[in-house]
Write a protein that binds this DNA or RNA. Structure first.
Lengths: 233, 233
DNA sequence: TGATTGTCGAGACTGTTAGTCTTGTCAATC
DNA sequence: GATTGACAAGACTAACAGTCTCGACAATCA
């Protein structure tokens, strides 16, 4: 729940530190009802976009009340999604071995994305984000946490020597989340535990360094350079 | 140019085989002007969606003329994009070695996606597709050709023993196009020749079979099973 | 107690856009 | 010359995000 302190942007009156605050107080129940309505509609969404009117009507609330506390439709939707998705943030496995850590992380991530309520909401928000640059930005922040967690997991493995010193960790992160989003949004391939294992194993094997990197073709060391910084964008 | 034979859907009169066709003929110049206008607007798009009115106005054409030949805005946009993107379909390198084939294919694909005209149009169409299920379908067909080409390239390598016999080729395809779309749409990381090489090399190394698949951690053979069929969805 | 402030639900309003319908014109065929 | 159908122009409808207005209500202050 990242929303309990929303203000009307640029409205210092709502900051209780400056002035005692007169006037009627914010109705927490309405606020809660809006988030619940938004999540319910997102979860039930069949592809048609969720409208503000529908959210307000479902919540039994005036439209203005929605816009008093959120700057745009996208912000409401993301708050509703966050409210839900924070419940199933993948934990950060630390088994001491990269391959098993990675397997667990990817499997948990795939699994979380597939939970029916989350999945439908996530898809709906992603669709909105395609048209709403502000929401797209919020989505980037939303995903950055998970990207960072994966990056750290990989960095730990690299420090232990399980990945080559010049491994491009960001590329691995993008391979994982690229496959996830690609299959999630297009739905043309599975995102199950088997795929998670295959992906984890081949990523580790493919970046393991000079010990077993060749296969049938010698893999000449080609000026790869490491890049750090957990999340670039 | 995949559009020269569009009909008004469900309008058998336009099929010249049934009846000689009376009345004024279709204006090819207008048709061409619409596609050109659409592409021009797509290429110049800054994020704001391209409207049908703008296309018609730019083409010097009535809106009805657009809708006479295309069923929806998405269809026009995709036709315009196809018109352009067919020019830079990556060829199918066949150097005899998987690693170099893959490097060339991925580099060419990344490069084509980045060409300024194509890139802007592609992004705009992808944004539209998020809201327009019909366009999303057309996009899948549009990308299927390229997916198939990559799949075949990989299958060739597997036959030559450069990939393990149980390699999941679809997963590799999705890693390539997943990274491509993910970085292309979010723009948080590069899609250059260096990345193409790294990606190709690690994919080959990670799926090379039992010769050098371990790295520091033994990679126990875990019941992976191959799945063929070039494109599943 | 009464004035002030700010929220509430309701819903009218504005502006934008996809897609349809209408009108008067023009070109091809019968 | 009649019919058919494409044409440009643009009015029209329906959805939707976001704003504005209204009368009611709740909290604070003088």
């Amino acid at each position: 729940m990242s929303d309990t302190e929303d203000h009307r942007p640029g409205d210092p009156q709502t900051d209780p530190t400056t002035r005692p605050h007169t006037g009627r107080r914010r109705n927490e129940a309405a606020h809660r009802a809006i988030l619940d309505a938004a999540l319910q509609l997102l979860a039930a969404s069949d592809g048609t976009p969720v409208t503000i009117d529908a959210i307000a009507r479902t919540a039994g609330v005036g439209k203005q009340t929605v816009y008093r506390w959120w700057p745009s439709k996208g912000a409401v939707l993301l708050d509703a999604l966050t409210d839900r998705a924070d419940q199933d943030v993948p934990d950060r496995p630390d088994t001491g071995a990269l391959r098993t850590d990675l397997r667990a992380f990817i499997a948990a991530t795939f699994d979380a994305a597939q939970r029916s309520t989350t999945a439908s909401a996530l898809r709906a928000v992603a669709r909105e984000a395609a048209r709403d640059p502000h929401l797209a930005d919020l989505m980037r922040t939303f995903t950055a946490t998970r990207r960072t967690a994966l990056h750290e997991l990989l960095a730990r493995g690299r420090e232990r020597g399980e990945l080559a010193g010049d491994t491009d960790l960001e590329l691995i992160v993008d391979q994982v989340y690229g496959v996830l989003w690609y299959r999630f949004l297009l739905g043309h391939g599975p995102l199950d535990a088997t795929v998670a294992e295959r992906l984890a194993d081949t990523l580790v094997a493919g970046n393991a360094g000079n010990i077993g990197n060749g296969g049938n073709i010698g893999n000449a060391g080609n000026g790869r350079q490491s890049d750090d910084g957990p999340t670039r964008g």
